[in-house]
Structures are given as C-alpha cells and as structure tokens.
Simulated scan of single mutants.
Amino acid sequence: MHTIWKGSISFGLVNIPIKLHSATEDKDIKLRNLHKECHSPIKYEKVCPVCDMEVKAEEIVKAYEYTKGKFVVLDDEDLEKLKKEKEDKAVEIIDFVKMEQIDPIYFDRTYYMSPGDGGGKAYSLLRKALEESEKVGLAKIIIRSKEQLAVLRVYENTLVMETIHYPDEVRKAGDVPNVPAEDKVTKKEIDTAILLIDQLTTDFEPEKYTDEYRTALLELIESKRTGKEIVTPVEKAPATNVTDLMAALQASIDKTKPKKTPAAKKKRVPAKAKKEA
C-alpha cells in the first residue's frame, strides 16, 4: 500500500511514528476528450486572454481574488515559508471526544495509519486506549499545504484518520430553501411510513451494493472494443405519479412484502381407493 505521508502522532508526551495510506480509491472511469474528425486527444493550453499567448509554468503566479477583478499576489517564497512554519509533520491530538458527538456531515476523507520504525508498541497502546475508552482523538494535521482537522479512531484493528471539515466549511442547514417548518402529517401516515421502514430494514452488508452505472459503462466499452453487438437493456416501467401520500406508502409496503409460498395441494384420493381402505 502506497505511503502518502510520514510523520508522527503526538498526545501528551507520547510520540508515535506513523505512515499514512489512502483508505479509499476513486473507481470512476476516466473518459478522454478527442477531436471528432481525427480522434486525437484534445490539449488544454494555459492562455492569457489579454496577451493572447500561451503562458509557460514559470510565468504563472498564485493570487487571491479579494474582490471582482482585484488580486493579492502571493510569491512561492511566501507560501513555502508559511508552510514550513506550520508543517512539523505531526498529527497532534488536541482532544478526545465521543464519536457519536460528531455528525457525519463533517467527515471528508479516510486514511489508514501504520506504525513507523520502532512505533509498534506505542501504536498498540493508543489503539487499545481508544477502544477501551470508547473515544476518538481529535487532531490537527497539514496535508498538501492545508491544515486539516481530523479524527483518529480504530477500524478493524487498524488506526484510521478521518479528515473532517471545520465548522465554517459546513453550510447552515437553515439556509436550505423550501424546507417545511412543521410536520403536517397524520398519525396514520407516520405509522404506515414506519411500517415501510421496518419492512426494508436489514443488516448493513457493504458487499451487496455495487456501482451499476460503472459496471454498465465498462460492459459498453468492452463490447465496443471487441466489436460485439450492443444489447439494449429492457427499460424499467415508469413510476406511477402517485400524488396521494397514503396511497404511495401502501403501494410501497405491498411491493416490499415477502411473497408467500403457495401451500402444496393435497392429492385427491380416488373413490375406489377409499372404499378398499
């Protein structure tokens, strides 16, 4: 597994050398843009609209647009100095909290942590302490020139770091338009909705969920590559536009009810056989 970061975890006076590995991977299928006439890949050039010329990498500077059309230019030296002042290659645990106190909306990316040289015992200590205290570590780390807030927890006997958003990066739910202020539903509607939820409730088995679009796209690409005939799947019947809430709930419940197996039919005994018995 590729190491993307090396450093240490520190909490109190304890220091644990660790390596960071990405826990997830992007499985999106990357499609290239080609010129329709000759099928050559399209090049994307950096062009200055004022000078009407292509700009080389060494001629580009970074800047912050503080108002429309006005910029503050930041030199590479300024950014590098700031980065060195903040980046000390440490995951500093600043607090320990209960996991359930952190809403999932804050979570961003997940990384596995492995112990560095000589860090096995301290790694095991932190892992055991987190498990027995039933808490997670709240930490700060700089990754790719950005200071991240992160959560350290245990997953399948491995320390995991989840980067999380800062509070000012999470938009206020109150700003979402057209959200009903009150629940204008009846008791019967609520009971029926809960019945539907109960019928659809199961244990979470991640293996049974697949990316159907990606699979279909790969099959399409392969069939085109090998020159096979492309078969169009049968379209699903369009959903009926049920406007009545109770009718929609009842229809959903009927659809999700387990089908009853028909009872075995009794064999008819011929009249003659009965008499002989």
Rank of each mutant, 00 (worst) to 15 (best):
L200E: 07
K260D: 12
N241S: 12
R144V: 06
E87V: 08
K70N: 13
M53I: 13
R153S: 11
Y155K: 13
L218C: 03
D75G: 09
P238N: 07
K19M: 09
I164A: 01
R144P: 05
T210D: 09
I143S: 02
K267A: 14
S252G: 12
K272I: 10
V14P: 00
K43M: 10
Y123W: 02
E219Q: 13
P49W: 08
I29Y: 07
T215P: 01
E207I: 07
K257C: 07
A63P: 08
I164W: 02
Y106N: 05
K146E: 12
L152W: 01
E77S: 11
I93Y: 00
M99I: 15
A237W: 02
G7P: 00
K275M: 13
E132H: 11
E182P: 03
D191F: 14
A248M: 07
E92M: 10
P17N: 01
H21D: 03
D28T: 15
K272C: 03
P177W: 06
S114T: 15
T261M: 08
D168I: 05
L130G: 01
S40G: 05
P270A: 12
V160T: 12
L152R: 01
L79Q: 08
K187R: 14
K36T: 07
E92V: 14
L125I: 10
K272M: 11
K19L: 10
A90D: 11
K46G: 04
Y112T: 03
K259E: 12
Q148S: 08
D103P: 00
Y123F: 07
K81N: 13
K265W: 05
A122T: 00
L200I: 06
V50M: 13
F71I: 09
T243M: 15
K236A: 15
A271V: 15
I141M: 07
E87G: 04
L220R: 07
L79F: 09
A193T: 03
S145A: 11
K184F: 12
A263Y: 11
E156H: 15
K46E: 03
R171Q: 14
K172R: 13
P49C: 09
R268E: 14
R144S: 09
E212L: 05
V73E: 09
E156A: 11
M1N: 08
I197M: 13
K257N: 12
V231M: 05
D88G: 07
S145R: 14
I29Q: 03
V154M: 00
A239T: 10
V61L: 11
K68E: 15
K98A: 14
K30I: 11
L34E: 06
L152M: 08
E45M: 12
V47D: 06
V179Y: 10
S40I: 06
S252T: 06
E59W: 11
H35D: 08
T24H: 06
P233H: 04
S223G: 02
E85M: 12
V242F: 08
D103M: 00
V61I: 12
L31H: 04
